[in-house]
Simulated scan of single mutants.
Amino acid sequence: MKWIYVLFALVAGALMPVQAGINLRLRGSLGDPVWAAAVSFGVGTLALLGYLLATRTPAPSLSMAATAPAWAWTGGALGAFFVFATIVLAGQIGATTMMAWLLAGQLTAALALDHFGLVGYQVHTVSWPRVVGVCLLLAGAVLVNKY
């Protein structure tokens, strides 16, 4: 395993509750979680466009874009739902409980996505150590939620 990717994942994961807290504060100022999510996505879009311009990354052709299946265009909507959900959850259950349940849901879904090779993933058959690992994370979410 390339440790730089592990470090990258750890940093990205650590920033998730920070982002949720920032967006929760934005919700407090704007008064609505959907507006906070929309502003968050707008700022993110501007940041990505700025990066693309700064790096002079060429835009894909329309013919290339047309090769994507229809479901591949739903990622942004799922991301918007996720940001909205974290804004609502952070204010209701706190950062630790929110992240525990999000992680439990993510890993449960990831186990199925890997096993069946869905939405572009290579097949990684379910094994008992993977199932035990996910079950331990679910148990951890229950403990975090309770205490």
Rank of each mutant, 00 (worst) to 15 (best):
L7I: 13
L7Q: 00
F8M: 09
V11D: 02
G13L: 00
A14Y: 09
L15E: 06
L15W: 06
A20F: 05
G21E: 07
N23P: 07
L26Y: 09
L26D: 01
R27F: 10
R27Y: 03
S29I: 00
L30S: 08
L30F: 02
P33R: 12
W35I: 07
A36N: 03
S40Y: 05
S40H: 10
F41M: 15
G42A: 11
G42P: 11
V43I: 15
T45S: 14
L46V: 11
L46D: 13
L46T: 12
A47L: 15
L48K: 01
L49F: 15
L49C: 11
L49Q: 12
G50S: 06
G50T: 05
L53Q: 14
T57V: 12
T57Q: 14
P58K: 02
P58V: 11
A59H: 03
P60L: 03
S61L: 07
A65F: 04
P69K: 10
W73I: 00
W73L: 03
W73D: 00
T74E: 01
L78K: 00
V83M: 04
T86M: 10
L89S: 07
L89F: 02
L89C: 05
L89T: 02
G94H: 02
G94P: 02
T97C: 10
T97Q: 15
A100R: 07
W101S: 11
L103G: 10
A104P: 07
A104T: 15
G105M: 07
G105D: 02
T108Y: 09
A109M: 15
A110L: 15
L113W: 08
L113I: 15
D114M: 10
H115C: 10
H115D: 12
H115M: 06
G117P: 13
G117D: 12
L118N: 15
G120H: 10
Q122D: 12
T125E: 14
W128V: 13
R130P: 06
V131P: 04
